Computed example of a mutant assay.
Amino acid sequence: MNNQMAQHIQGNLTEIISQWQEKMKSEQNERSFQVMPQELMNQTSHEFAELMISNLLESHQAYESQLNDFAEKVVRIGWSVTFVTKAIGNFAEIVYESMSNEGVIHEGNIAAYVKEFSNWISPIRESTIQAYAKTWERTVSLQKIALQELSASLIPVFEKVSVMPLVGTIDTERAKLIMENLLEGVVKHRAEVVLLDITGVPVVDTMVAHHIIQAADAVRLVGAKCMLVGIRPEIAQTIVTLGINLNDFTTTSTLQRGVEQALAWTNRKIVEVED
Rank of each mutant, 00 (worst) to 15 (best):
P37K: 09
T169Q: 09
G243N: 06
D248F: 09
F158P: 00
I121C: 08
H8R: 04
V229K: 02
E30N: 10
S32E: 13
I77F: 14
I244A: 07
K225A: 00
T172A: 15
L67T: 00
N247P: 01
I124D: 02
A111S: 12
A216C: 11
G11A: 05
E137H: 12
M1Q: 08
N12R: 13
E184A: 09
K25H: 09
S65Y: 01
A131P: 04
E58A: 12
S80K: 11
S65H: 07
M41F: 01
E39C: 00
M36R: 10
Q10R: 14
Q4E: 13
M24Y: 02
P37L: 10
V157A: 05
S54Q: 08
K225Q: 11
H60P: 00
V163P: 04
K144A: 13
P165A: 06
E116K: 09
Y113R: 04
L196F: 08
F83W: 06
V157R: 03
A209Q: 04
V204G: 04
T44R: 10
M227R: 03
E274R: 03
S151G: 14
P233T: 06
N101I: 02
N29Y: 14
I235M: 14
P233K: 07
A175R: 01
N245Q: 08
N3P: 00
A111M: 15
V240E: 05
F117Q: 03
T251V: 13
A209S: 13
L13T: 03
A131Y: 04
A131L: 10
N247A: 13
M36E: 09
V186D: 00
R220C: 00
V271R: 08
A224W: 03
M52D: 00
W265D: 03
I239V: 15
E184F: 02
D275L: 03
E272K: 13
E72G: 15
S141K: 11
I94Q: 07
E30M: 13
A71C: 14
M227A: 09
V95M: 10
Y63A: 13
E192V: 01
D217R: 15
A236V: 05
Q261A: 12
S118D: 11
L150Q: 11
G200R: 11
G168H: 06
V193E: 05
I239Q: 03
V222C: 11
D217W: 01
V201L: 09
T254N: 12
I17H: 07
N2W: 00
E260L: 04
Q148N: 15
H189D: 07
V271I: 14
F48A: 03
Y63D: 02
E30V: 07
Q61G: 01
L246S: 12
E173S: 13
H8A: 08
R190K: 15
V157H: 04
E58T: 14
Q38H: 02
T85K: 11
V104I: 14
D217V: 09
V35F: 08
I110S: 12
I212A: 02
L228W: 04
V75T: 08
W265I: 01
E173Q: 14
A146W: 00
A209C: 04
F48S: 07
P165E: 05
E107G: 15
L56I: 10
E27S: 09
Q148K: 12
R190G: 14
A146M: 10
